[in-house]
């Protein structure tokens, strides 16, 4: 049983809410009698009614069909930890889910929880961020109610030098989730931007706490523009940006996207722990199609141009510069 955090409910209510959501989900569209629910949940019919009322308050549309029972009509637009947890069947990721209406940055919250010892697989999700983080002081536009802003705490037993491999794991999970929930094709730019037709859809930023020989924890920060409208983008963007809605013309259920993403992340992380970096690297390479491409890499101390030879076993970009191979550890890639 996964444990999520519900903003307003105690733990017993949480578990029951989740069971009810699971039942409605399994029997989508069916009318289920109060009596059947009361038997399945082991509570009185009055208690069933109370819980259904509770779900309505959380934004679920549950219709009561006289003399027949209840039917789930629609899930709320807002993000609900129980809704996400009910859709998960993961081993590690989502062991604990914390949903927030608004926070400064989910990475900050996750980092703090990790320092306090939160369990591996803790996921922090916010409906809005007031100071969404980008790389090196840049910001990530995080308007309310339309996108995904989440951070995942991992505690892998790998040396700090190998932790950069996790960057590639999370971006592959996001690419998979986009392709599983939309007809779009996600393309990965080194190391972990996701573009659709050349426009940036997702930004990922990871933070680590480590000692010389040991990773304390890694926070994987994931921002995906899901239902964001054109007017919600800031005017001064460095690169062309878009959302899944703008690319696909259809709104996407954010709870469904998150469930898919967390399941893919869980599977990839299990593979990583069992088989190492190899399979993740292979999938990343096939999705990025960078090999042999000419590129310019802009860093704070200047730019270099060369032919991309792939990535090494830490994920560093291998750039052939007139026969001399350079390992690139950071910077913005532009294909030429």
């Amino acid at each position: 049983m996964k444990e999520g955090k519900l903003q307003t409910a105690d733990k017993g209510t949480q578990t029951l809410n989740r069971r009810i959501l699971e039942i409605f989900r399994e029997r989508k569209g069916e009318v289920i009698s109060g009596e059947e629910l009361s038997t399945m949940l082991g509570i009185s019919r009055t208690a069933v009614w109370k819980h259904v009322e509770g779900l309505r308050k959380l934004g679920y549309t549950v219709s009561a069909v006289p003399a027949k029972g209840y039917r789930m009509v629609a899930s709320p637009e807002r993000l609900v930890a129980d809704e996400i947890a009910a859709g998960l069947s993961t081993e590690r990721i989502g062991t604990r889910i914390v949903c927030l209406d608004e926070t400064d940055s989910t990475n900050n919250v996750a980092f703090r929880l990790a320092e306090e010892g939160t369990v591996e697989g803790t996921v922090v999700i916010a409906d809005a961020q007031s100071r969404g983080k980008g790389r090196l002081g840049r910001s990530w536009a995080s308007p309310k109610g339309v996108n995904l802003y989440c951070s995942v705490v991992l505690r892998p037993a790998v040396p700090p030098v190998a932790a950069s491999q996790l960057t590639f794991l999370s971006v592959v999970a996001v690419a998979r989730a986009i392709e599983l929930t939309t007809p779009l094709k996600a393309w990965i730019k080194w190391p972990n931007d996701i573009l659709i037709d050349g426009r940036k859809i997702a930004g990922l930023l990871n933070e680590m706490s480590a000692e010389t020989e040991k990773v304390n924890f890694v926070v994987l920060g994931i921002g995906v523009n899901i239902n964001m409208r054109r007017e919600q983008f800031p005017p001064d963007l460095r690169h062309p940006a878009s959302s899944l809605y703008l690319e696909n013309g259809e709104e996407l259920d954010r709870n469904r996207f998150i469930c898919t993403l967390l399941r893919e992340l869980d599977e990839l992380y299990a593979i990583y722990l069992r088989l190492g970096y190899g399979p993740v690297r292979e999938e990343w390479l096939s999705r990025s199609q960078l090999h042999g491409r000419k590129a310019r890499i802009d860093a704070q101390n200047g730019s270099v141009i060369g032919i991309i030879n792939g990535i090494d076993d830490m994920g560093a970009l291998l750039l052939d510069m007139d026969g001399r191979e350079e390992r690139i550890l950071s910077g913005d890639v532009t294909l030429l």
């Binding site: 950069s164 996790l166 933070e207 994920g315 550890l329």
Partner: peptide, 11 residues
């Protein structure tokens, strides 16, 4: 300081 490797930031 920060040491960055492949967008993994280590303060």
């Amino acid at each position: 300081c920060i040491v960055e490797a492949m967008k993994l930031m280590n303060e």
